[in-house]
């Protein structure tokens, strides 16, 4: 298997993305075709399968957007967050409250949630991005736990531990009917999620994405080259928070219920594991990772008589050994082409 790992001996960057500028146009075309075909297949889902699959897929897509936004932080930016459920949950609450108090218009909820996720991340990120590695991991965990506790305690606004209930079904256009059918809801979620993935991929390939990757690989060097590494990392943190908030609003669209558990350690850990399973830095890998985690937890696990965690645990162990670079390591072999080192 060809390696694009380079010869770096650093430990925290096993899966290096190959989405940099060195990749040629020729390599990108079949991939675009594949992505378009996949998107078409996803659009066609409600015509083919019953509504339960559409609901499951909606959940997967919302969670996948969360995972991909986290991959922007972890894989592209080298900032391993164990608290990404916080902006996600903030977005979910803001979307739910907007829906209840203001409007059933989904795009308004989406924007409100994304802004809330960004504002939250900006407030805490100002301090958090100053630390690195394991300390970053633990500080994000602490902030998320504090946010979860706040959601638990602030019951006039959040409904406390009983959660935020009575969220109306969304409308997509003003005056349109509420989207009660799983299929229509799914199309909305799919559209927003696809837009979100596209934007995150674009950000990752932009000049900003390149400097972010540079900082991940060697922060001191980038600093000596004159980059404000703080500003780049902070921007990435806020952007990831905005997309996580947007993912939170999609989650609310589907579940129409928000509880403090949505900001909890489990969501953060599952999102991080989805990123690792997918292969860090390969944004599309995180989508597959998210699909696997949600599928096992919600679909298979619910029917295993309480042995869901066992299956999840075995899956994690198997992935670590069998897919050392996550799903992204399972690339179609293209002969005659070497990845740039």
């Amino acid at each position: 298997m060809t390696s694009d790992l380079g010869t770096s001996s650093r430990t925290d960057q096993a899966a290096r993305p190959d989405t940099g500028p060195a990749r040629g146009r020729a390599g990108r075309a079949p991939r675009l075709v594949l992505a378009a075909a996949l998107l078409l297949a996803l659009v066609a889902v409600p015509f083919v399968v019953p509504s339960d699959a559409a609901n499951l897929l909606s959940r997967i897509l919302a969670f996948a957007l969360l995972a991909v936004s986290l991959d922007l932080l972890v894989g592209v930016g080298g900032m391993p967050s164990l608290g990404h459920a916080a902006p996600f949950g903030v977005g979910a609450y803001v979307a739910g409250i907007t829906a209840k108090e203001l409007t059933a218009l989904a795009p308004v909820q989406l924007v409100a949630a994304a802004v809330a996720g960004a504002v939250f991340s900006a407030l805490v990120g100002w301090l958090i991005v100053r630390v690195r590695g394991t300390y970053f991991l633990m500080l994000t965990l602490a902030v998320a736990e504090l946010a979860r506790t706040a959601a638990d305690q602030w019951d006039q606004v959040t409904g406390g531990s009983n959660g935020l209930v009575g969220i109306p079904a969304i409308q997509v256009v003003p005056g349109g009917g509420p989207l009660l059918l799983a299929g229509f809801r799914y199309w909305y979620v799919l559209a927003v999620a696809a837009l979100g993935f596209g934007l995150i991929v674009a950000i990752s390939r932009s000049a900003f994405g390149r400097s972010l990757r540079g900082i991940r690989d060697n922060e001191d060097r980038m600093a000596s080259l004159g980059y404000s590494t703080f500003r780049v990392k902070f921007t990435a943190f806020v952007l990831a928070g905005a997309f996580a908030g947007a993912a939170g609003s999609l989650w609310t669209v589907q579940s129409r219920f928000v509880s403090p558990a949505d900001l909890g350690f489990n969501v953060s850990a599952m999102a991080l594991l989805a990123v690792v399973i997918g292969g860090r830095g390969r944004l599309w890998g995180a989508i597959l990772g998210a699909a696997l985690v949600i599928f096992i937890r919600d679909e298979v696990g619910a029917q295993l008589g309480g042995r869901g965690p066992l299956l999840l645990g075995i899956t994690f162990i198997a992935v670590v050994y069998l897919l050392p670079r996550g799903f992204a390591g399972l690339r179609l072999h293209r002969p005659g082409r070497k990845d740039p080192a």
Binding site: T11, L137, L272, G313, V320, P324
Partner: peptide
Amino acid sequence: ASRGHLDQALLTLGVAFV
């Protein structure tokens, strides 16, 4: 050992679940 904290976290969390 050479793969970083996140892979170890994934593995040890898997062990914890089992």
